[in-house]
Nucleic acid binder design. Structure first.
Lengths: 160, 160
DNA sequence: TTAACATGGACAGGCAACTGACTATATTAG
DNA sequence: CTAATATAGTCAGTTGCCTGTCCATGTTAA
C-alpha cells in the first residue's frame, strides 16, 4: 500500500469555496447594476430591516468586528445606499437605515445568495449542497459550544 | 406555511468554518512550541520538499499570490525556519529550503491538519466530514472549469 | 542571432480585516 | 446617589491579502 494520497488541506478547500462565493456575489451585484458595491458591503444589506439597526448589531450578525462594519457602513453612506440617524432610545447609538436606493439592493442581495446556491447545486447536486450546509451548521454549532472562536473570543472579551 | 426560515448565508458558513480551521491550526502549532508561526506561514510548510521550491510554485500550490507568499517566506526566513538559495538551473530564481528548525515543523504541520479534521469528525461524524471534503472538491473542480476565479483569473492573466 | 514573449522575483500602494485604547452614554450594585 | 461596569462608536496602528508595475533572466520564433 502506498502512503495516503496527498489530499488537499481542508482549510484550503474552505477558503477557495468562500472566495468563489464572494466573487460570485460581487459579479451578480455588478450585473444587477450595483457595480459600486464591494464584497464587504454585501454583509450589510441582508441585515438592515425597516426599523434600522445599530452598527454593533450588524457586526454581530455578520460576524465581523464593529470597526470593520463601521467602515463598510460609512462607505455605503457615501454611496447613498444607507443613512444613519440617532437612535431615539440610546443617545450613544446611531441606527442604520436603507435609503430608497438601498431598498432596491436588498432583494437583489438576498436573491443572489439563493441563486448562487442554486447554481452550485446544478454543478454538484442540490442534495450535496444541502448536506454541505447542514454539516457546516452542525460543525459551527459544535465548535462554538466547546470553545472560543476568533469571533466569540473578542465578543466575549468585549462582553465580559 | 410561513416564509422559508432565515437560513444563514452559505458564504458566511464557509467563512466561519475556515476561520475556525485557521485558528485551530494556529493553536496547535503554538501548543507544539511554534508560537511564532502565524496562520499564513502554515501555507508554506506542507509544500516545501527536500529539493527546495520556488516562491512562485509555493504560491500556486497554496493558491495565493506570489507577493503574499514572498512575504510569508521572508518572515519565516527571519524566524530561522527556511532559507533561500539560488536555483542552480535558473539564475532568476531562488529556492526555498527548510532549515533544521523548519524540518521539525513540517511533520507537525501535516499532522495538525489531519488531527483537526479528525476532531471535526468527532463533532459531526467522520462520514459527514468526508462528504464535506468530497463536495468541496467536486464544487471547486466544476467552478474552475467553467470560468475564471479570483485566483485563476490572475494566474491565467500572468500565464497568457 | 536577434526580436518577441514568458516567467521569477521585487517594489509600491490599496483594501479590509484585525487588536488595542479611548470617549460618551447606559445600566447595575452598593 | 454614587461608583463600578457594560456598551456604542471612533481613532490609531498592524497584518495579510490584493493589484499594478518593473527588471532580469529564460525560451521561442523569425
Amino acid at each position: 500500500m502506498a502512503d495516503s494520497p496527498p489530499r488537499p488541506l481542508l482549510g484550503l478547500l474552505l477558503r477557495l469555496a468562500q472566495q468563489h462565493w464572494a466573487q460570485d456575489i460581487d459579479a451578480a451585484l455588478a450585473e444587477a447594476g450595483f457595480g459600486d458595491i464591494r464584497p464587504p458591503h454585501a454583509n450589510v444589506f441582508p441585515f438592515v430591516g425597516p426599523d434600522g439597526i445599530q452598527v454593533s448589531e450588524l457586526a454581530q450578525r455578520a460576524r465581523i468586528r464593529k470597526q470593520s462594519m463601521a467602515e463598510a457602513v460609512e462607505q455605503l453612506e457615501e454611496l447613498g445606499y444607507v443613512e444613519r440617524r440617532p437612535d431615539p432610545h440610546d443617545r450613544r447609538a446611531r441606527l442604520v437605515f436603507l435609503t430608497p436606493r438601498g431598498e432596491a439592493v436588498r432583494p437583489v442581495s438576498l436573491a443572489t445568495g439563493r441563486r448562487i446556491e442554486e447554481q452550485w447545486g446544478e454543478l454538484v447536486g442540490q442534495e450535496e449542497i444541502a448536506t454541505l450546509r447542514a454539516t457546516l451548521e452542525a460543525l459551527l454549532a459544535s465548535l462554538s459550544e466547546r470553545g472560543t472562536t476568533a469571533q466569540s473570543a473578542a465578543s466575549t472579551a468585549e462582553r465580559s
